[in-house]
Amino acid sequence: MFEQRFHFMHQNSFFHILISLIAGIYFGFIAAIIACLLTETSLGEFIDNIKSPEILSSIIISLETSIAVVILALIFGIPVAYLLATRRFTGRIILDTLIDLPIISPPLVCGLAILIAFGGHGLFSHFDVIFTIKGIIIAQLFVASPFLIRSARIAFESIDQDILTAARTLGASEFYTFRKVSLPLARNGIISGIIMTWARALGEFGATAMVAGCIPYKTETMTIGIYMHALSGNLDASVALSLLLIVSAFATLIVFKYLGRYNDPIK
């Protein structure tokens, strides 16, 4: 079952048995929880639930907003990531920390901050975003875009400096080098950033709920739907939405890992 990397790692050693055991417990725990969700419903029930207008609407809202978030995150995130990866300037550490902040802070706190900024007497109060789709997008972007920026930055930073230098000595401007060398070489990191950002946006709950509320057919995303249906006793609808999220996440990750392994330009 285990393919050994080095011949001196003995499979019958105490240590090997120990780590296998711990890993077994860990994966068993996760698999059991997912299995519980899977066995909670039948395929027929699942399809019936998904076809209900409110759930369909929440799926559409989730897809629309998360895709918008990915596009916006790309437009802002790629230049930011490139800037942080290639420039050394004072205050860089502050910017870097600012990007990590939404990853670390509770989404509720992010949501509250957005609510204050855009609501009542906030700095951006003349933008009408509270309880709207725009509010969902802003909340998701705030929480999810750092994943793309981090991933892209690491990808840009890991490009061999000599390759970029070579491009410059070959007569390429920095912009040309960015388009023709940096971007293609950072491709895998950017794609993985897109997937993480998209998944995070799709799964966003706390900040979205704070900013956009839970209005069916208007601001009810899939995750908010799961929460609302569970609260109102319609557990079947929650289960159906949860299954849809988990299965699509699993499928996306598998596809990405497969692509990443066989499409790596360096290998």
Binding site: I163, T165, A166, A167, T169, V181, P184, L185
Partner: peptide
């Protein structure tokens, strides 16, 4: 207009 050849070749892998 000055060419450069590197120790590690620095070819474009893509």
């Amino acid at each position: 207009g000055i060419g450069f050849v590197f120790q590690n070749y620095a070819l474009f892998p893509h």
